[in-house]
Nucleic acid binder design. Structure first.
Lengths: 402, 402
DNA sequence: GAGAGTTAATTTAGAACTAAACAAAGTCGG
DNA sequence: CCGACTTTGTTTAGTTCTAAATTAACTCTC
């Protein structure tokens, strides 16, 4: 009864599952082409996966000149992933299927600065899992606003949460017994975009978020760029002026200190565009009402974002840019500043680079975190140590083997 | 007598050769660890490579606790690569061994804007190859100042050379019958740095060149980042001001338009620091002589470079930065502006990021181009189509098989 | 200086994978 | 509706690779 799973085969089995999960049903021949494996091997592995109940054979596809393909799809009962979004004052949860669809979601208040925050978080997570329908949980993905050292151990540094060296991954793993992947929240969004969004058909793109902070997830050759220490994508701290407003990071003139939500609100208050206790909603309302001061603030922010993004685009050459985050609620006011600044600073042959604005719900962040779990078993690089293997084992362990 | 080389094995044989070429002699056990292959396979492949005369067994290494390792080295007669640097007014050539050492070099005048430039270039290359000692030429690497669409076909767009859509790779391949790899010159330098320089021990770093233009080669997870269309690393066109001097690319306020060699000379002339027909050498001499105007120009350029690089560092999170290029001749004058600007704009935990300035000879560019050829057979991604395989075949074809 | 411990390399049995031939199931054009 | 052509999927024989046991060659300790 020893299962004795060799490593190589599991990787390829996972690759099949990943492809079907990410791009929907496909035929054996298509899988062979896409995964660069021989048709013979696909036949063999699919046979096992079907026997294990992880795949199902769907209807025949219409023929295009030859024998029609028998499509293969994921058995949607194969398992669920839990995504957790952590911010300073609350946590959001989602449970998603292997196809990325949200099964249920929740949001709870949470104080990240409390001394007992880890115990608190564990409690909330346990409650959420307990409320599920008993479908196997493949793993736990956690998105945090900050930099994460190694995905596996999940050591978090976050100015926004006031955390330094918090070993969140290890703590959650011990408490839940589940595979845990911790990642910067923007990178998590980039993974989700890659698996389920516009990035499905592109290997190089940029995910930009605007809101409290400004960040980027950089996808290069199909993988999220993490950099030497997991801190890549911090475009919010790109210096845009030699002496600008002081940023939360301690430096002067960061992009985030100019166009982050806090900066916009501060400017609006100083200029009397909103009341001294007004917030971002008031600024947006003022701009919607045609107030010139509010419109000017948004336009300036859009211009600064456009100019900075042009530089990032030149550095990494993406096929397109996706903008999302809470800030996109007011994008109609950013746009008049953004478009001319962005386009005019791009090299001629890249002027027409597509920029997509995605509508935004708060649960998207958590969805991104869940996507980490679904992507991890198929990550050849194995950046998260054992976690990918563990998730694979839970997935494959679903069925009785041989 | 059919050789019948299967693909997979050749990749692993090449990987062994690559490692030995890049990092010097190693033991079988070391190779197994580094390449993540089983010791059994290494034993097998090394046996064949030794029989083929591509490897030699060196002296024993001193034991460190156990059986001492028998070191393996490349047979340096295995083949040479030719590197070509193309700029507007001349071409430089080098011939290098598989270990990266330069065997010989040359430099010839060349007019990139002439209508017959391709025929001219072919002629020069033929002459250089003919002057060699008959060692097998594995391939031809060409570095150009501009963006290259697909490495294999080598379609070049270069404002500096006045080329658009030039199919340089195909032309050279037809004319020489050799495998040809065309690449942006800064990316070529990054490859050289990865194979033979500081990048040997790091997977994420930044290569920055200053001189006529400003560029960056971004190495991510061991590979040069090329982006969606091969145009990554163009940090010279990062906008640093909303309205700055007009750049060669047609936009306003590019970094290059502020701190490129042309911009420095223009500023110096305008301020009367050098004569109206003076050049960059005069500016450097003035700064060396303590002329405050010259020193100020360098200092300002250093500051702008530092601020911009801080942004790039935040975006891609390298383990270190290498600065090279003609401009480094005057680095002692850049440094007082660069250091404070760079460090003060970095996030706190990255303040101590190492920045290495490399001494510079003109032939380094060509050496980088040659490194492309040596790196190509071992590039798993196969970004250059068939060229990698062709180079492998020439390398392995050196010896009589079985 | 005889074991105990370590590291290096090889052998062997078997698993993972591929190429190539083949079988199956359609379209298309007369 | 019959053969030519395409595309999909399977079988078979053989290659590539790994795991595990084994042999080899050293150091270290008592």
């Amino acid at each position: 009864m020893a299962i004795h799973t060799s490593n190589r085969t599991d990787v390829n089995r996972s690759a099949i599952l990943a492809r079907l999960g990410a791009d929907g049903p496909a035929s054996r021949a298509e899988l062979a082409r896409v995964l660069a494996l021989s048709p013979a091997l696909i036949t063999q592995l699919v046979k096992e996966l079907l026997a294990d109940g992880l795949l199902v054979e769907l209807e025949q596809a219409p023929s295009n000149g030859g024998r029609p393909a028998r499509m293969l799809g994921l058995a949607t009962s194969a398992g669920h992933a839990i995504g957790v979004k952590v911010v300073a004052d609350h946590v959001a949860f989602v449970e998603v299927g292997v196809d990325g669809r949200v099964v249920r979601s929740a949001s709870e208040p949470f104080d990240a600065t409390a001394s007992t925050f880890i115990a608190e978080l564990i409690e909330r997570i346990r409650d959420f899992i307990a409320a599920g329908d008993g479908t196997t949980v493949l793993g736990l993905g956690v998105g945090v606003p900050g930099s994460v050292d190694r995905l596996g151990n999940g050591v978090v540094d976050s100015a926004q949460l006031g955390w330094t060296g918090v070993e969140l991954g290890d703590a959650l793993r011990r408490a839940t017994g589940l595979p845990v992947v911790v990642e910067n929240n923007v990178n998590a969004l980039a993974v989700a975009e890659r698996l389920f969004g516009l990035g499905r058909s592109h290997d190089n793109f940029l995910v930009v978020t605007i809101g409290t902070g400004v960040g980027a997830g950089i996808v290069v050759d199909g993988n999220v760029l993490r950099g030497a220490s997991g801190g890549a994508g911090e475009i919010g701290h790109t210096p845009v002026a030699d002496d600008g407003p002081r940023c939360g990071c301690g430096n002067d003139g960061c992009l985030e200190a100019h166009i982050g939500e806090g900066a916009l609100v501060r400017d609006a208050r100083e200029r009397g565009v909103i009341a001294p206790d007004g917030g971002i909603d008031d600024l947006l309302a003022a701009a919607d009402a045609g107030e010139p001061g509010a419109i000017a603030i948004y336009r300036a922010a859009g211009g600064l974002l456009g100019r900075t993004l042009a530089g990032v685009v030149h550095a990494v050459d993406p096929a397109f840019v996706v903008v999302l985050g809470e800030g996109t609620a007011g994008w109609r006011h950013w746009s008049p500043g953004f478009e001319p600044a962005f386009r005019s600073h791009l090299l001629r042959h890249r002027r027409s680079l597509p920029v997509e604005i995605e509508t935004w719900q708060d649960e998207s962040w958590a969805q991104g975190a869940a996507a980490l779990v679904l992507a991890m078993p198929f990550d050849a690089a194995g950046s998260a140590g054992d976690q990918g293997r563990l998730i694979r084992e839970r997935l494959v362990g679903q069925a009785v083997r041989r």
